[in-house]
């Protein structure tokens, strides 16, 4: 008789923690949480080998809702937190989650360098073009004429940050866009992102019912990408520049060297002390 210990197959709901989300009813982030748990179940990842890392914002609450290891850090610094963890613990599946303000404004510099460092991380940005947790201010992806915030009564007057274009320019090796209203497509992209060896950037259009109710229309505006995934950055750039921001799918994937230190010890601290001896 086979006595090997068989890990029972986990279902998506087994990856949900007992902590109740703080999100508003109808928030797109519920669908992202659901897609994360489905992807983890699909990949049969043991819970204790998964780390969910985030910064601050509505979407950054996600780690507490997943039954895995997690770190809810400070605003804008999810990517460094995750990069340090992955550098020290390459055996873990490290997934970073956050919003457009956290990732593209206060954390913008880390986004650039995480793309070019190409560590084996999955970065999910739940983009709703607004700061929700601070009650509705313009974010880097907000259109320049959106004037609903008292902070910017005339709109921002700035062209929006283009996450996929910047990810490509900064050297990300996996660039995709999903939609909270398309849970199956989102789960499939997440599975691909987690399996991708390198920095996988997944922008998720995730409507904010409270501060951007007009985003309910997104379900009519999104459409599948009309380009097959490419490994050619020039082709990807052409596509991304022409994109209306609503195309869904995997745009660009390329095998690039992954930054991951892995050194076997060959010395002890006592060995190092010899260099100082006269």
């Amino acid at each position: 008789m086979d006595t090997a210990i068989v890990t029972p197959t986990l279902r998506a709901k087994d990856y949900k923690s007992e902590v109740a989300p703080v999100w508003c009813p109808g928030c797109g982030h519920f669908a992202v949480l659901s897609a994360v748990t489905k992807a983890l179940a699909h990949l049969k990842l043991p819970k204790e080998r998964v780390a969910m890392i985030s910064g601050i914002g509505c979407s950054s609450r996600l780690p507490a809702y997943v039954d895995a290891y997690g770190f809810h850090g400070i605003h804008g610094r999810a990517l460094p937190l995750a990069s340090g963890l992955k550098a020290a613990r390459p055996d873990l599946t490290v997934i970073v989650a956050g919003g457009d303000g956290d990732g593209f404004s206060i954390g913008g510099n880390h986004f650039l360098h995480a793309c070019r460092r190409n560590m084996d991380l999955t970065y999910i940005v739940m983009d709703n073009e607004v700061y929700g947790m601070t009650k509705g201010q313009a974010s880097p992806t907000t259109q320049p004429d959106w004037a609903k915030s008292k902070l910017t009564p005339h709109g921002t007057g700035m062209r929006p940050f283009l996450p996929t274009a910047i990810a490509l320019a900064a050297g990300a090796s996996f660039i995709a866009r999903g939609f909270a209203g398309d849970p199956n497509g989102l789960t499939k992209l997440l599975v691909e992102a987690i399996e991708h060896p390198g920095f996988a950037f997944l922008q998720v259009l995730s409507p904010c019912q409270t501060f951007r109710p007009e985003q309910k229309e997104w379900k009519h505006l999104v459409h599948p990408s009309d380009m097959a995934p490419t490994d050619d950055p020039v082709e990807a750039a052409r596509f991304i520049q022409a994109d209306d921001g609503m195309a869904l799918g995997l745009f660009y994937v390329r095998r690039l060297p992954v930054w991951q230190p892995q050194h076997q010890p060959t010395a002890t601290p006592a060995d190092l002390e010899r260099e100082f001896v006269l």
Partner: peptide, 8 residues
Amino acid sequence: NMIIGSSF
């Protein structure tokens, strides 16, 4: 933040 992550 990187060393907080690695220490975690």
